[in-house]
Design a protein around this nucleic acid. Structure first.
Lengths: 141, 141
DNA sequence: TTATCTGTTATAGGTAACCTATATCAGATA
DNA sequence: TATCTGATATAGGTTACCTATAACAGATAA
């Protein structure tokens, strides 16, 4: 399963779903234009209420990551990052980055080590990693 | 004032205090061994309840960032990053980094741009930036 | 000693977040 | 027709978050 959640996590379920979808897009596992499962279907697979999935999808829509139509359902936007609220995104994002990197520094990770891990994560993006025969919950079909 | 919070933010107040303290340590504005304001004092300065500050300090203590004694109050640990829960810190931290960097990628920031901002943030750490005469809420005194 | 500040703990209450449970409606589809 | 879908409404329960008040004990200064 390409999308897993942790019911015991302190992170809200809808936030976990949102994070996994964003990561899947960055990884290339979710191509632009591809459809996400229906809210009821994904809720059934995750054994949660469909309103929780609906909240996650609505968050992704408000962030400009996906489009939601009654016909085609939830679809990854082809021009994600071009929404109206994207103007000041970089600044707000870098503020959160600053907090996260500060945390690593305080916990003893050297600046070089931190930068190395940043590069490692970035390099991991863009490559499709679904093995042949693996069930892909997030793809069409 | 070196520590400001936004009461209208969706980020909990205690989380904002925690974030600002961590950033101040990374910036070098809060040296190891220096004391934080008392919970009641900081609460009064921020015009919030002292229990909220107490929650922020307790979070920093559980994260191994500060020590709290009845005598010296809250003090920045000299060996922050050496706590018992620091073993698996790097992995958990990188997972959060992955989510954050994926978000930037999805919103159109190129991989080079993302890496450049990571370096920019890291380079900003370590330099003391308190101007002469500036009131420093987080220092001794 | 007295007064004050500190950290610590306890209790209580209000608002909001989060998740679930049902139900209904209408458009699309097999 | 039957089914799936997105969208919306209501309701209830649990927990997070913040505030308010009180009390206790250790440390410190007048």
């Amino acid at each position: 399963m390409l999308l897993t959640i942790d019911l015991d996590s302190e992170v809200p379920i809808y936030q976990q779903i949102r994070d996994r979808v964003v990561e899947a897009i960055a990884d290339g596992d979710l191509a632009e234009g591809s459809a996400l499962p229906s809210t009821r279907q994904l809720a059934a697979d995750l054994a949660i209420n469909f309103h929780t999935v609906n909240k996650a999808y609505d968050l992704l829509r408000r962030e400009g990551v996906i489009r939601i139509n009654r016909k085609s359902g939830a679809v990854v936007r082809r021009d994600a990052g071009s929404g109206p609220a994207e103007a000041g995104f970089a600044d707000e994002w870098q503020a959160r980055l600053r907090t996260l990197l500060a945390e690593a520094t305080v916990h003893g990770l050297g600046e070089q080590e931190v930068l190395r891990r940043c590069g490692e994560v970035i390099d991991s993006f863009g490559a499709r990693k679904v093995r042949p025969g693996e069930v892909d919950l997030l793809s069409n079909g």
